[in-house]
């Protein structure tokens, strides 16, 4: 549900960049979104077009790189893939695990003109 405001933030940050880096059009926006970031990719794709309307990113392609959730088990010290915050260690069933990746919500790069 908050994907529209995330997309609006993306557009704001891009417009700020445009002033600093002198570009007029954005062709591609590449984001990194972690599996644990609480972001619906579909909703993000849907919201982006609406947020980009009448901006220099209107019609730009939104490319989302999904980052898997990774955690370290403090007991067996293994790195494991997780899909939720409350996942338990698949080997020793310990929780909580220490999340090391998957919370990202980042603008990685832009293709600009």
């Amino acid at each position: 549900m908050h994907e529209l405001s995330l997309c609006e933030s993306v557009i704001e940050l891009i417009e700020e960049q445009a002033r600093q880096q002198c570009f007029e059009r954005v062709k591609t926006v590449r984001l990194e979104i972690g599996a644990l970031a609480g972001v619906e990719i579909e909703a993000m794709l849907f919201s982006f077009d609406a947020a980009a309307r009448d901006s220099l990113a209107e019609g730009a392609k939104l490319d989302i790189i999904r980052i898997a959730g990774l955690a370290i088990c403090p007991v067996c010290e293994k790195q494991v893939e997780v899909s939720a915050r409350f996942d338990v260690c698949p080997d020793c069933a310990h929780y909580p695990l220490q999340i090391v990746a998957g919370e990202e919500m980042r603008i990685k790069e832009l293709e600009v003109q």
């Binding site: 933030s9 980042r106 790069e109 832009l110």
Partner: peptide, 30 residues
């Protein structure tokens, strides 16, 4: 914000052809 965008400054004067711009900025940074 004024971010240090090291590594992409050399392309900034190129006009029409498209170029890649690294941002590495948190969406919630503002």
């Amino acid at each position: 914000h004024t971010h240090d965008h090291s590594g992409h400054g050399e392309g900034s004067e190129a006009a029409s052809p498209s170029r890649m711009l690294r941002m590495e900025q948190d969406i919630l940074s503002k």
